[in-house]
Design a binder for these strands. Structure first.
Ligand code: FES
Ligand code: FES
Lengths: 137, 137
DNA sequence: ATAAATCCTATAGAATAGGTATGAATTAAA
DNA sequence: TTTAATTCATACCTATTCTATAGGATTTAT
């Protein structure tokens, strides 16, 4: 399951997508509108920033905005920044690969085969740009 | 990511599938062959039993075997027994449904829509009977 | 100057993960 | 009938992660 952290992050990114990009959105505003605990959100925003997903403007009237064009941002990116790998087992993760200590042979591992298939179905969906997430009013 | 518990459970189920069903496999045997910590495995086996995935024979020469025909067992069942929902968010889980406290409207939730799609791709793969996991020698 | 922000570090409580300890109950075989 | 192998049950333990909060330093528009 997705962590709350990741879920909050996704909501934040979606909020920023909808927000007019001329004025940055303050953490306070996001916190109120999306009902995310303020201090927790600050934390998440810092993390999103280090992962280059949002950029910030300091000082009064400051806030956050998407760091790049929404067409270049995906939910997968947010998930990886918050929770790490999308794959359900480490041995098939592209970016967070680790070998399975208890499996002797990756090539013939039945578990691995199955979860590789799962991953290859999940990833394309999660990697779609957030612009494809239509806001049905 | 899958918990170790779930991974061990899957390996156990696969081991039992390969094991001749006339003689039950003892926890000790499974533990050694699959390098799963013995006491932890006992724990997992008990859980698998309450979820009706394995059955047991007590006493000396006792052990465990699959509780039903392998064609009726899927990895999804094992995962649910160990880790709970397969869905990445609770509001789209079939068996472990919970509403999302911070989402006001499920119908229009963009996150929900996306993850529903993800889930609907994952589940059929994970629900295939374990007999389809060919053992490539 | 002041207020509104971000930024940074540290901490705390709760839950979960991963595993261990101890021992009782059951049963086949010696 | 004793012994050894095994499941069954409960409780406990330790480390980590998750979720969140606290306190303050820094930046900047007004
Ligand atoms: S090699 Fe990763 S699950 Fe077997
Ligand atoms: S309703 Fe579950 S994520 Fe929005």
């Amino acid at each position: 399951m997705l962590s709350k952290r990741a879920k909050y992050a996704i909501k934040t990114i979606l909020f920023l997508q909808d927000h007019p990009e001329l004025v940055p959105a303050s953490a306070k505003l996001i916190s109120e509108r999306e009902t995310i605990p303020y201090k927790f959100l600050e934390n998440i925003l810092r993390d999103l920033k280090t992962h280059q997903l949002v950029k910030s403007v300091r000082g009064a009237e400051g806030g956050y905005a998407l760091a790049k064009d929404p067409s270049m941002i995906s939910i997968a990116q947010v998930m990886r920044a918050m929770d790490g790998p999308i794959a359900l087992i480490p041995c098939i993760s592209e970016r967070f690969y680790e070998s399975c200590p208890e499996c002797t042979d990756e090539e013939t591992c039945r578990i691995r085969k199955l979860f590789a298939e799962v991953r290859s179905e999940m990833v394309p969906i999660l990697e779609r740009p957030i612009t494809t997430l239509a806001k049905s009013k």
